[in-house]
Design a protein around this nucleic acid. Structure first.
Length: 924
RNA sequence: GCCCGAGUGGUGGAAUUGGUAGACACGUUGGACUUAAAAUCCAAUGGACAGUAAUGUCCGUGCCGGUUCGAGUCCGGCCUCGGGUACCA
């Protein structure tokens, strides 16, 4: 038997792929293209653990497979290189973020190569590279120079808008805009430059505005909604508060409709589509305008349930609502002011944690548009200013929140839809019948919605309206390590810099903290902060999202200096055929990428308006942490088997390094050395052992539960690691890492090696004719593997290889006719092994030039009884068969059956599935 | 609360459209080789019962019910776990 020297083999082929630039895609080709991508990583200092490569291995397998299938494959790998950790490291150490980032990228690439993950070397982009972010800034400027025309459903140049304003004002413009008032052409012309600029800003797709933003004091920057979870920052978990600030925004809401609609055609998981759908949060309803008693102003509300209008007994406005001042009576003023102040200082987290209703009466009343009744106007923070109109018509009988509020403050509850019991709870169904509702009485609630809106529109006090939950995304950060915003303020007016000045490179600064005056770090660049013509620059940088919103467009044409990519090249490659990554980017990166793609499509830079045809979410490989109990009082560590439910509370949980634990028993001496806690006390069990317990969670350096792939590559080889990660379970499932089963996969490779190589490393391949049985096995294997890859069930492919190998070993078969195809199909999964065996079979060059074998039906059908038939389509019939019949009898009975005969109508069945003695299924 | 997804041996998991549940692997047990161990190879391995044995019978895919000749798979109602999301009017 030969010895499978994986270390030597793997080193050899990794070198080969690098030297031969094996994975460089042809820019233009007569072959069909296949563009497959991973979500590029942030090059963190911690390096890769075994959880990271799961998706990368999958894409690498498909890359190799598609190449063997004759595709021109682009499989790039770049780096999301701007980001907080490098900046925070820089603040601490003074080392430039670029330096540490470069170092980390090198390390990532080395680690990936070690695992046989080789990409197109011409695509190693980094978002922090000026030749890349030049174009990030360029796209930003394009957004600044465009507005969104709702009637044409596309972005148009801002100059066209200026011309329209000059000719006819803004009355007839249908734009996605934050502009409030209307103006005529004359009024426009009368405005000074600054006033005109302010108006235009309300139309630009990249715009500057004062708004309530998520401010994170600990990070010293604002965050996008997608960066905030439960009132804390996604990165670091720091508290986030609301603050009014001037910020750059991208008008993604202009695209809400299109982002929602084209979701349908994408091959994404339902979960992912649902998340995006919910995030956009489209809801249909109506706006209704109310007069305010004794005040010359109106309250506009948005509701999805106008059918319940007659049950409206009070109004609620958000604490920040513009009318609060005006409505409040003198008698109530003190109380209202107190409440508003309290509500505004309440943190986001508290609001989320505590949903009991609070509120205060303003003293003012609105007039019910139908009945003329006076409705008290309340202020409550369960109504938020950012959604709808910031005011609601409260219908306690048919809305849970209003119900709770009315109950607490003793407000009338009037039932207008029968079917529930409003003495107990709100009845929110649309299935009931309208009552106490004038002309709506007797209708089904769902029909009443249409009827009431028609009436409101007739009366001119309301209209159909679609509201979105999605908000424009804040596109500025008060940080150093990001793309500088290419804007200068000329006499206080924001203007994009000339494209010839791009890239606007990050200046060198001596410290990376915000400046003493509270300006962003870029304020420290004393020379840079003013444009050569003397005007001050914008000091914000773009968020991490910027670079990742379009990188898939750069990969195909990385070195282009004239454009972000050559049109012909980028349109050949786009859209991406398969995009693999985690679900965590559902509402961030994936949204922005779709949005940018649509924008570039609108302005004629792209032929496609969706970037990712197929999205695959790989599950996370979790870590298994080893946890110890520590006595809260004495700080003594206590063996886990001494802890039970009764005394659990007196201990805290402390994680220890998984390398110190063997079979649940920790090396306490090793722990002391590791933590330098030489004084640590351990209470061991009777056997003198110190036990830990296991906890499955995210694999992370900070949990000491990471497993280093390098160690595994050294011990068992990269091919074993790759096969094992695929073998572990479906690619989409989350699962804990467990190294124990890896030996089985390694054994398989050793066996497979011995099919090709005999004693003294001599080839033992013969040119004998294979038997029918062997051919059957081969073609079964090919079929299984091919189908497995097609539906991304890699965990089914690996056993197929194993069965083949085991059988060949058992039959002592070393036939070329069998082993050659086997080497090819295996080479996608275990590429070093495949290449090496290909060479042993006497071939020159890489196995990637071989073509993937086609499985043949004739070798597979033996066990199945099939009859050819001319009828199209798949029809099945089901009939009963006596339990004792064998296969032949079953079939005979089935075909002789009266119903079947009648149904077959003289034709013969295409396929008869027989389960001996049971039931059959006939396919025509 | 709402919206997704998932529950199969000791473990990870197979079973693609309803058709012999548990492929493959780990682990465990027994055996071969060995002075011994490692490595390697072979065998057994869902449970219960009956039999010297070949084998047979019954029960088994979270729980309860339904459709079907036939259900891990489809339908209805629960339970548990995972993910997302939230005063969204």
């Amino acid at each position: 038997m030969g010895t499978y020297d994986f270390q030597q083999i793997e080193k050899k082929w990794q070198q080969y792929w690098k030297e031969h630039r094996t994975f460089v895609a042809e820019k233009r080709s007569s072959k069909p293209k296949y563009y497959i991508m991973d979500m590029f990583p942030y090059p963190s200092g911690a390096g890769l653990h075994v959880g990271h490569p799961l998706g990368y291995i999958a894409t690498d397998i498909i890359t190799r497979y598609k190449r063997n299938k004759g595709f021109n494959v682009l499989h790039p790998m770049g780096f999301d290189a701007f980001g907080l950790p490098a900046e925070q490291y820089a603040i601490k150490t003074g080392i430039h973020p670029a330096e540490i980032t470069q170092k980390n990228i090198k390390r990532f690439l080395t680690q990936m190569e070690m695992m046989g993950l080789h990409h197109d070397p011409d695509t190693a982009l980094a978002t922090c590279d000026p030749s890349y972010y030049k174009w990030t800034q360029w796209i930003f400027l394009k957004m600044f120079d465009h507005w969104y025309d709702k009637s044409a459903e596309k972005a148009r140049p801002i100059q066209e808008l200026i011309d329209t304003f000059a000719a006819e004002g803004n009355a007839d413009i249908q734009a996605a805009s934050t502009q409030k008032g209307k103006f005529t052409a004359a009024e426009w012309q009368a405005m000074d430059d600054k006033a005109q600029a302010e108006v235009l800003m309300n139309y630009r797709i990249a715009y500057n505005a004062k708004a309530s933003v998520n401010w994170c004091p600990a990070l010293g920057t604002v965050l996008a909604d997608a960066d905030v979870k439960d009132g804390r920052s996604e990165r670091g978990g720091h508290p986030v508060e609301k603050r009014m600030m001037n910020q750059w925004f991208l008008r993604i809401t202009a695209y809400s409709d299109r982002l929602l609609n084209s979701l349908q055609d994408l091959d994404w998981s339902d979960a992912m589509k649902t998340m995006q759908t919910n995030w956009i949060g489209r809801s249909e309803g109506a706006t209704i305008v109310y007069d305010v008693d004794g005040v010359d102003d109106k309250i506009e509300v948005f509701t999805t349930r106008p059918d319940t209008l007659y049950g409206n007994t009070f109004m609620v406005v958000a604490p920040e609502h513009r009318l609060v001042e005006k409505i409040t009576t003198d008698a109530q003023r003190a109380e209202v002011e107190k409440y508003v102040e309290w509500a505004q200082n309440r943190s986001e987290r508290d609001r989320i944690a505590d949903t009991t209703k609070t509120g205060v009466f303003t003293g003012g009343h609105a007039i019910h548009p139908m009945t003329g009744k006076k409705l008290p106007i309340w202020i409550a923070d369960y109504v938020v200013i950012t959604y709808g109109t910031g005011a609601i018509m409260a219908v306690p009988a048919h809305d849970e929140r209003d119900y709770e509020f009315a109950h607490k403050f003793g407000i009338d509850i009037i039932e207008v839809i029968s079917g529930g019991d409003i003495s107990k709870e709100a009845f929110v169904s649309k299935d009931g019948i309208m009552v106490q509702s004038d002309f709506l009485n007797g209708m089904k609630a769902s029909d009443a919605i249409t009827a009431i809106i028609d009436r409101l529109e007739e009366m001119g006090i309301g209209e159909r309206k679609i509201t979105f939950r999605q908000r424009d995304v804040i596109w500025s950060r008060q940080r150093y390590w990001g793309e500088p915003t290419p804007i200068v303020y000329e006499n206080g007016i924001a203007r994009g810099i000339d494209p010839s000045e791009l890239p606007l490179e990050l200046p060198e600064i001596d410290e990376y903290k915000p400046s003493a005056t509270g300006e962003p770090p870029l304020g420290r660049a004393t020379e840079w902060r003013n444009h050569p013509d003397g005007f001050p620059r914008d000091l914000n940088t773009m968020p991490n999202w910027a670079g990742s919103s379009w990188y898939f467009l750069r990969y195909p044409d990385m070195f282009n200096e004239q454009a972000f990519a050559d049109k012909e090249v980028v349109n050949y490659w786009m859209p991406v055929d398969m995009y693999v990554g985690g679900t965590e980017h559902a509402v961030g990166h994936l949204f922005y990428s779709r949005f940018w793609t649509k924008f570039l499509f609108d302005i004629g830079e792209l032929d496609v308006d969706e970037p990712f045809n197929r999205l695959v979410n790989q599950g996370m490989i979790q870590g298994v942490s080893e946890v110890m109990y520590r006595d809260k009082e004495t700080n003594e560590y206590v063996s886990a088997d001494l802890v039970n439910d009764a005394n659990e509370d007196q201990y805290s949980h402390i994680r220890t390094d998984i390398n110190l634990v063997q079979n649940g028993v920790m090396d306490t001496a090793g722990f002391k050395t590791w933590t330098k806690e030489s004084e640590a006390q351990f209470k061991t069990n009777e056997a003198g052992e110190f036990k830990t317990f296991q906890q499955v969670e995210k694999m992370s350096k900070s949990y000491y539960n990471t497993v280093d792939p390098q160690q595994i590559c050294e011990d068992m080889g990269a091919d074993t690691l790759r096969l094992y990660e695929m073998f572990l379970g479906p690619i989409t499932d989350a699962k804990p890492w467990n190294t124990e089963g890896i030996s089985g996969v390694h054994t398989f490779l050793k066996r497979a090696y011995n099919l090709f190589v005999g004693e003294d490393e001599q080839s033992i391949i013969t040119d004998e004719e294979p038997t029918k049985e062997e051919m059957k096995l081969l073609h079964e294997t090919i079929k299984k593997v091919e189908e497995g890859i097609d539906r991304l069930a890699f965990n089914v492919c690996v056993p197929a290889f194993m069965v083949f190998t085991k059988e060949m070993t058992r039959m002592k078969s070393h036939k070329r006719t069998l082993l050659e195809p086997f080497a090819i199909i295996l080479s996608s999964f275990a590429p070093h092994f495949g290449e090496e065996m290909w060479q042993r079979l006497g071939h020159e060059g890489s196995i990637l030039t071989a073509s993937f074998p086609q499985w043949e039906e004739k070798y597979l059908v033996e066990d199945e009884i099939t009859y050819p038939v001319q009828i199209n389509g798949k029809v099945r019939t089901k009939i009963g068969i006596p339990a004792q019949a064998d296969k032949a009898q079953t079939e005979e009975i089935a075909l002789g059956n009266e119903v079947v005969q009648q149904w077959l109508d003289g034709k013969s069945p295409k396929k008869v599935i027989v389960v001996p003695g049971r039931i059959i299924n006939i396919v025509v």
